[in-house]
Design a protein around this nucleic acid. Structure first.
Length: 327
DNA sequence: GACCCGTGGGG
DNA sequence: TCCCCAAGGGT
């Protein structure tokens, strides 16, 4: 990966977007699927938004997928990626980190690449006692000082590898670390204390309901799916209808149509800033709601449901199965 | 700067 | 089980 073979800006960009706040293991199958299905930025630019969102389902942070499409279309229109940090920085979904990473790795520019790994390594190397996030400017300055003029992309990848495999958040493997002799945090005797961080706010508990509405359609069983509004949580994704729960407030418990509803159970799901208990209820009746679509239950895995609603669907289908068994 | 946005794995 | 957190960006 580092150095030798020419690095395709499209693949570098795609992998960097996918890797934002996401582990390599989680990204791998998605990266493979995307690059097979859309081998170039032009191919991705020509894809439908619906297909890309569905292909992203399960990876999380869905605004990345919306920005991915917008970015691909801009780049295709302009006949290629800009080859400077500043040019890249102006594209949707590309911030300071990603612009620096692409400029360095794909275009061989000198750039100071600072992600959470580099923050940790640098904080320890220099034993920076100011807590994050206030220490960011200092960390960036220090990172700039140790970034070489040439092959800064390889340097960045080496720093990130060091941070993810040796200079880990907990129990850093200092005995294996090539920097241990220079590490100020190691000299303090407690390197894992770095980087210092401000205490976080507690995560609220929320409750909500999801509605399972089934019919016997012309080609088999269908379930009613809706598309979530673009900007909110899980924005733009297909989902089961729900009662309007959010990270800020509980749902209303109001079903989308009147009728008999049967509680099937509940699923738990943790988001970054809220924990949710989602009760799944099934409609017993013959009316159809509006503002959505019937989706074949047999092909539900192709609907691109975010993990929360995939869990809810699994619960509903298991309840169906046990009911069929009882009958 | 603060807050919003998912998910899966490790300890 | 629970908590922490990861190759961040947008507002």
């Amino acid at each position: 990966m580092p150095g030798e073979e020419p690095t395709d800006p499209y693949r570098v960009w795609l992998s960097e977007i996918m890797l934002q706040q996401t582990t390599v293991a989680a990204v791998k199958p998605y990266f493979e699927a995307f690059t097979v299905r859309w081998p170039s930025v032009d191919a991705l630019a020509a894809a439908s938004e619906e297909d890309v969102m569905a292909a992203w389902a399960g990876l999380g942070y869905y605004s990345r997928a919306r920005n991915l499409i917008a970015c691909a279309r801009l780049v295709a229109e302009r006949c290629g990626f800009p080859d400077t940090e500043e040019g890249l920085r102006d594209l949707p979904g590309i911030g300071a980190y990603t612009a620096a990473a692409i400029a360095a790795i794909a275009f061989g520019r000198r750039a100071v690449v600072v992600d959470a790994n580099v923050e940790r390594v640098v904080s320890r190397l220099f034993a920076i006692t100011e807590p994050l996030p206030a220490s960011r400017p200092t960390i960036r300055e220090r990172a700039d000082q140790i970034t070489p003029e040439h092959r800064s992309g390889d340097f960045a990848q080496a720093m990130m590898d060091l941070g993810s495999s040796i200079c880990t958040t907990r129990a850093p493997k200092c005995l294996l670390c090539p920097l241990s002799g220079d590490c100020a945090a190691r000299k303090t005797g407690d390197p894992a204390r770095f980087p210092l961080k401000l205490a976080k706010k507690p995560v609220p508990e929320r409750t909500g309901r999801a509605y399972w509405i089934e019919r016997e359609g012309p080609a088999g069983r269908d379930v009613w799916l809706v598309q979530r509004p673009a900007k909110a949580m899980l924005g733009g994704m297909r989902a089961l209808p729900d009662d309007g729960w959010s990270a800020q407030s509980d749902g209303s418990c109001m079903p989308p149509i009147a009728g008999n509803w049967t509680e099937l159970g509940a699923v738990r799901h943790g988001f970054t800033h809220a924990k949710l208990t989602l009760t799944v209820v099934r409609y017993e009746g013959d009316r159809a709601p509006d503002g959505g679509e019937w989706w074949p239950v047999e092909r539900l895995d192709e609907a691109g449901l975010p993990t929360l609603f995939a869990k809810a669907a699994t619960l509903a289908l298991a309840a169906d199965a046990s009911q069929d068994f009882a009958a």
